[in-house]
Amino acid sequence: MLRLDLAPEFRLLKIETNSAGKKRQVDACGSRRDRVKPASERSAGAPDRAASRGALGIRSSPRTVRSYSDSAAIIERMFSLAMNDTAADLLGVLGGLAAGEPPGGLAPSLREHAAQGLSRRGELLTWASSVGNTAGTPSFFNDLTAWECSDSSLHLEDFVPVDVTTVDGAPVISDDGQRMLLMQGVAFALEFSRLVYVLDPPSPVRCIVGANETNATFRFHQIRSGESWNMPDLDKYGLDKMVVADITPAVT
């Protein structure tokens, strides 16, 4: 399993992988105080850091700092990505974060869906357009987390044009199609995080993106103690490429 910890500006803080019993950790960050100087203030020949960022604002070659803990101490909010090995291999993120960026950026239909915003309904967090019945929740669901995941779930292939063939009456999506849907799902989670960071009162939220040869989904839920929709070890999902994003707003 691979984990990426990002600052709110989506700059890389830490990469952790645990595959085949081997753990690899890379610490890298530019602090929030390390702002990008305008061209008028940069010395001749100095690189433009903003130009080194991809469509998601992630630096492909982050600057190494002395200590991850020192850098993390000044971060007020966090965006963490975890994915199983099959998702990491399909996206090719170990070769550089830019490899996981969708060509052309986030699909317009997904950006439009995110623009509706979020709504609080009692203890529940939903899309603003949700018509889910919150009366008596969690009802037949195990908990509020399961209710939110069911209500917020959407199929990425309904928003992103990919080739879906039919074999023996079942849909089939190629590896290239799954890769595109995963990339769009991660980009959508980054766009979605902007909605979470302005929640009042603040609440940590988890996004779950999954893709297999038949479909790809995105769903979210508030992070609650003792509740989880996904298995902690994402590598236990043998047929699905899984990406989990934890969005933690600042708490004042």
Rank of each mutant, 00 (worst) to 15 (best):
L2A: 05
L2V: 11
L2D: 08
L6C: 07
L6D: 10
L6Y: 10
E9P: 04
K23F: 08
V26N: 00
A28G: 08
G30S: 13
R33W: 11
D34R: 07
D34Y: 12
R35Y: 05
K37W: 11
P38Y: 13
S40I: 12
R42A: 09
G45K: 07
P47R: 05
G57Q: 01
S67K: 01
S67I: 12
Y68M: 06
D70W: 14
I74T: 15
I75C: 13
E76C: 09
F79C: 13
A82V: 07
N84D: 14
G92S: 02
L94A: 14
L97V: 15
L110R: 04
A114T: 07
G122R: 02
T126V: 02
S130G: 10
N133E: 03
N133G: 02
T134C: 01
T137F: 03
P138D: 06
D143P: 11
L144K: 06
S150Y: 08
E157G: 01
D158Y: 11
F159C: 00
F159S: 09
D163C: 04
G169V: 03
P171A: 09
P171W: 10
S174G: 01
G177I: 14
Q178T: 04
R179P: 04
Q184V: 03
Y197H: 12
V198T: 13
N212D: 15
H221F: 13
Q222V: 10
R224F: 05
S225Q: 10
Y237V: 02
Y237G: 01
L239M: 12
K241Y: 06
M242C: 15
V243E: 01
T248Y: 06
T252Y: 13
